[in-house]
Amino acid sequence: MIPSIFQYEFMILAFIAGIVTAIVAPTMGVFLVIRRYSFMADTLAHVSLAGVTVGFLTGTQPILSAMAVSAITAIWVEELRRKRRVLGDSALSMFLSGGLALAAVLLSASRGLNVNLHSVLFGSIATVNRLDVWIILSLGVAIFLAIVCLYKELSCIAFDEELAETGGVQTRLINHIFVILTAITVSVSMRIVGILLIGALMVIPVTAAMQLSRSFRGTLWIAIALSLLSVIAGLFIAYYVGFSSGGTIVLLSMALFFLANLCKKFVGSP
């Protein structure tokens, strides 16, 4: 017997998109967290809202327009950080508000535009369609392959950027690839967890995994496992109880974080 949840195509699509998101988000998140760049995910997510609006206005796929806008922002922020013109965190907070402001202006200018803002902000399982899933799946695979190929460069820079540079790693090139991958991850995750909660899915499972792990690679695997657990359980609850998918997923990952923290306290640090 197939559980009734999988008799609906939109739920199968939601699960495929959810699983891709659950794998890709914390994988990028690990590098963001240890570089103290977590806020990058939130900033790009807010900028994505402007991208989504542009997509609706021009009739492009919202995921693709969101991706383009956040990739451009990502490179911009990264260059500002590299040239030390602006402090890293103020650049991020500037673009976060700027993105939101642009979205507000575009939305107000296009009165009568039929955008379901709530589902864009908090994620929705009912609105995922086949085309979305194909886009999410192919982008997800591309991100994963890129991380596999660049794992040692990305982690070398994450451990210590200056040491990586003096050791001969092409830090500027790799950093650009890294922020573009982050932008793509954000647009992939947008459908399921929503713009306001993407940052959480990239950061919370990683922070939870850090309580339990004894290595960087271990942190990565544990974070993916915790995130899969939150997303799959979250989608079931969202379907059966009718809660918002993004909200449920993030609350579950918070619960896992507290559990991991308790484990550390009682079992001892790794």
């Binding site: 040692k152 982690s155 451990f159 990586a164 290595s215 271990g218």
Partner: peptide, 10 residues
């Protein structure tokens, strides 16, 4: 969390 081995390999 990062192990000694991971630092050296980096």
């Amino acid at each position: 969390p990062i192990s000694v081995e991971e630092i050296v390999w980096s």
